[in-house]
Design a protein around this nucleic acid. Sequence first.
DNA 1: TCAATAGTGTCTGTCAGACAATATAGT
DNA 2: ACTATATTGTCTGACAGACACTATTGA
Lengths: 227, 227
Amino acid sequence: MPTSDADRRDWRPIATVDTVILTLDEGSLKVLVHRRQRAPFAGAWALPGGYIRPGEDDSAEEAALRVLRTKAGLPNFYIEQLATYSGPARDPRGWSISVAFLALVPRDLLPDLAEDVSLAAVDGLPDLAFDHGRIVRDAVARLRGKGAYSSLPAALLPESFTLPELQRAYEIVLGDHIDASSFRRKVLDLDMIEETGEAQAGVSKRPAKLYRLTGAARTFNRTLGAA
Amino acid sequence: MPTSDADRRDWRPIATVDTVILTLDEGSLKVLVHRRQRAPFAGAWALPGGYIRPGEDDSAEEAALRVLRTKAGLPNFYIEQLATYSGPARDPRGWSISVAFLALVPRDLLPDLAEDVSLAAVDGLPDLAFDHGRIVRDAVARLRGKGAYSSLPAALLPESFTLPELQRAYEIVLGDHIDASSFRRKVLDLDMIEETGEAQAGVSKRPAKLYRLTGAARTFNRTLGAA
DNA sequence: TCAATAGTGTCTGTCAGACAATATAGT
DNA sequence: ACTATATTGTCTGACAGACACTATTGA
């Protein structure tokens, strides 16, 4: 069983994680990317990612959260497993396997973007390192496909939001117009959201009521990825 | 960078694949399991699985197909990525990462079962090695959750089948009764199936027409997993 | 009062499920 | 003709989208 280093390297692929952080910014769906400092693909835009460290991480998910903390300075939040990408060619360093995760984050929870971090619109994505372009496309397809009426798009909004804002989030995610009255009926029937009691202020038109996700909806949200 | 073997082993997790083969047998949904010959979990039931071999496999999916060919004697068929399981405790041999795949296979395509291979009903599953019990539960949840009207359950039936048979397959998969007239309308509208021109023979009642999946439905089926 | 958007009420077409009615094989 | 399904037709309630109408704020 014991063999040379070269052989052993051949038997255990490189194991990494990559994260797709999606948010709503300036009316469109964007993904967080950073400029790579080191080879391979130095200077190219890439998803935040890194090696799984068995000595340090308790799971691939923990590894992804660690990468987000240390590489992007992001706090822990809910991430959902997207898919796993593998093969000899996707990483020039050798046969690799990467577990990709997806998170929906309100824009205001993202810290001020550093020099080498940027939000790229998912429609008209620039070229990304590795197979990250494909990973982002898969993530967006998953988001768009998954329950037109799951509570997911609400995760892109701040703690409290108006119904028109929520509707716009759905429209951006789904890429389609939604009728306002149907939307209200549906979303209120589902007990996903509840009034905060407050209303918009300082607008020169009828102010909209503010809502928040109900506890039930937040939980539903958290567990959606498991199914 | 070069370190001792122990260190390097620590940096690259064990990488494996596991496969969940689901089929309809005696009116219920079953999963193919085999009795492990070797430690760990020698003697226990487990999903067919094995190491990814970077020198031999072009992707995790190829590795899974190779495992099915060599360990279970199964031909190549469409498998869909399910999820990836990882951590220090799931395999006593060390920190491991396993990519799980799902396949729906007509019972008559499974070769005669060898001594150490068996079909276990997914409801009332026996204890399985590793975290395979959880993997099977996730697979069944995915199947039940995924498009009530995707063409997926049809993959569990032989090449040609009657509408009542197809309906029963859906009912078993969904675990719920379906109205016959609605089912016919829907499934025929979707252009998923087409008449073969033949009909059942040798039944002492009105014989049902035979159908097959349309080319479009088969393709749809194949690509479902990608989204 | 006006502009602009929030929010409500009503109509209508679509569709799934319930269920009755009809069709067809072997016996 | 009779039995046991297969298959079709009709009715009805739920619901999404269209759209007209009312409400409410600051200017």
